[in-house]
């Protein structure tokens, strides 16, 4: 039985590393996009270390890069970060961590670590999946952020390389798998129309942030 357990352990670690490398490689897209949005290499790396949540990071540089204020950038990316807190609620009962370890565990509570953990069968595999995936994504995401930022600094005009379109394409890919019903499509289309109609009349950054109101109204009533 020990042997069986070890084999299972190896596959959890293998899956975790696979996810870590694949997702981490997108850190290079983030690093490059940050430079294209007028952030520095140090700021890109600080975001990957300290914020460590892909959607929030891309949202922040997206809002500031299109002329939005720091405040609307912080609001948009923080709203996107709320879901990590809800993952944390789900994971806390499985992880049972206290003290400084909770600080580390909290920082690596993201889509991927939660997803891999919840895909396991036993509590010990769940813990292993969480820590291995979270640590692997953290490591590779940060390394690739630095490489992408340094690379983009060398490239020059981001539009000539399609970097300005790679960012919304990443967002489109991220939202795509969440559009799994007529209702979610209707919500996305309403957000599209609202953001377009507010653009000529509201300061940059506000059209994006204000779509959150749609989520609250539609989620409240059901």
């Amino acid at each position: 039985m020990a042997g069986l357990g070890q084999n299972v352990g190896v596959s959890v670690k293998g899956d975790s590393l696979g996810v870590g490398i694949t997702v981490g490689a997108f850190g290079s897209a983030f690093g490059a996009a940050a430079i294209a949005s007028h952030f520095t290499v140090a700021q890109a790396c600080a975001l990957s270390l300290l914020t460590f949540s892909g959607a929030s990071q891309f949202a922040l540089i997206g809002v500031l890069g299109t002329g939005g204020s720091a405040l609307s950038g912080i609001a948009t990316s923080s709203l996107l970060g709320i879901r990590n807190g809800l993952y944390g609620v789900r994971m806390a009962s499985i992880l049972e961590i206290k003290g400084w370890k909770r600080v580390l565990g909290a920082q690596i509570t993201i889509d991927e670590s939660t997803g891999v953990a919840l895909g396991q069968d036993s509590p010990s595999q769940m813990k292993q999946g969480f820590w291995w995936t979270g640590s692997a994504v953290f490591t590779f995401w940060n390394i690739f952020t630095l490489l992408g930022a340094l690379g983009a600094n060398a490239l020059g005009d981001p539009s000539a390389w399609g970097l300005d379109t790679a960012i919304p394409a990443i967002f489109l890919g991220l939202v795509w798998h969440r559009l799994n019903s007529r209702k979610t499509w209707a919500i996305a289309i309403s957000a599209f129309v609202l953001a377009l109609s507010l653009t000529p009349i509201a300061p940059a950054g506000v059209p994006i942030m204000s779509t959150a109101v749609l989520a609250i109204i539609l989620g409240w009533r059901e």
Binding site: L172, R178, A195, T199, A215, L218
Partner: peptide, 23 residues
Amino acid sequence: INTYIPIVLLTGLVTVQSFTEKT
């Protein structure tokens, strides 16, 4: 609400970054 927030914000970001320039 938590399910819908990423949908609207990500859609908002795609929209603004693909089809607008300042205002």
